[in-house]
Design a protein around this nucleic acid. Structure first.
Lengths: 195, 195
DNA sequence: CATTCAGTTCAAAAAAGATTGAACCAACCG
DNA sequence: CGGTTGGTTCAATCTTTTTTGAACTGAATG
């Protein structure tokens, strides 16, 4: 009853609830290094009940056609939204991928992996460079080798952990397998007390 | 034999090998959204054999005192480097945390966690907002509730997976526990088949 | 065909972020 | 004390990224 007459208009033309979703994804987008507008677009589509037309994205969000176009292209490329063709309508419609699992797993494959692979290449170069200069380096050659080795080991670990992480995410929530490492400082096992 | 007379000088005054390390961490830093200079500093320290004084960072890397100061402060704050007091020297020396495990785990706790917690807050607000408007929303209230629920579920999953991930990383490499999910590409339940 | 409508492209403007450097502070030194 | 030396701060500057908007392409429509 004590609400002010107008919505806390976060973005032109959005209902308070919609802009809640937008907020959430703007936060997510920026923490992940994507432009804010991409977060807005995705949030808006994620909230929607049905496919949304390009020009509605522009109008409701109050962003330029240019941004919308680029943002939607990016989101499509990374598999976060897809186009939907609506029969008697000339416009293209978009829907968000709402299964978080898909989103996550896609991101892992398409964004994280390539970076880790980039790392691998750099480590390899680094190691070559060390060997190339080994004689000049004298005693420190070994030191450098061991530092490089640690980078390599770390990176490889990350690489193999990647698919595993993906799996873990796909597990039905209550089942998290804490079993195999009950050693520990962090988490009490999830199983209930059944004597 | 075919090498040019001078090093491929990536940064003033660095040996080729050092700049290999610097490269690696610049890459890492930028993919993680940190300023390049922070990557440079860390790379340089990571390569080093012994503690490095502030002014050497400035000189060898050819960056301003300002950058060095801020970069070192940040790195210290996130636990990636620490100060070392060298007896008869007025300057402060720095060493990189070279145990990748520590770095990683610290990053998980200090960077990822807070973000996920931020998410939680936003989801909570979102849910409140949905309830606040529930009557106005009519039929779509349920739709919004379910979308919000999926965000919540996802976020909570991430939150519980965090310590687990940390554990996995700490495991001696050869031991990776693929055992419990030898199933295939998607999601056969983790419990074994006991009729 | 000429027109309108949907959307893309891309150069220019705006905003956000990183870096510099000069002023400054605080030990230490002589 | 007065002068160095080691380092921090922060406003100004430079760089990079994001956003805009106007020109453009290419269907559909009439």
């Amino acid at each position: 009853m004590s609400e002010p007459a107008s919505e806390p208009k976060v973005a032109e033309g959005l209902h308070a609830v919609e802009s809640g979703f937008v907020h959430f994804f703007v936060h997510l987008a920026t923490t992940v290094g994507l432009p804010r507008s991409v977060g807005e677009i995705f949030g808006f589509l994620f909230a929607a009940d049905q496919p949304i037309a390009f020009d509605e994205v522009v109008a409701r969000l109050g962003i330029s056609k240019g941004s919308a176009s680029q943002g939607l292209r990016l989101l499509t490329k990374i598999g976060a939204v897809s186009q939907v063709y609506v029969p008697r309508d000339r416009r293209t419609f978009y829907v968000a991928e709402t299964r978080m699992r898909q989103l996550f797993s896609h991101a892992l494959q398409e964004s994280l992996r390539p970076h880790l692979e980039g790392n691998s290449r750099l480590v390899a170069q680094l190691e070559e460079s060390i060997e190339a200069h080994a004689t000049t380096l004298g005693g420190s050659a070994d030191h450098y080798r061991s530092r490089a080795a640690s980078l390599r080991a770390w990176n490889e670990k990350a690489l193999v952990l990647l698919p595993l992480l993906d799996k873990l995410f796909s597990l039905p929530a209550p089942f998290f397998p804490f079993g195999f490492l009950r050693g520990s400082s962090e988490e009490p096992p999830p199983s209930d007390d059944q004597p």
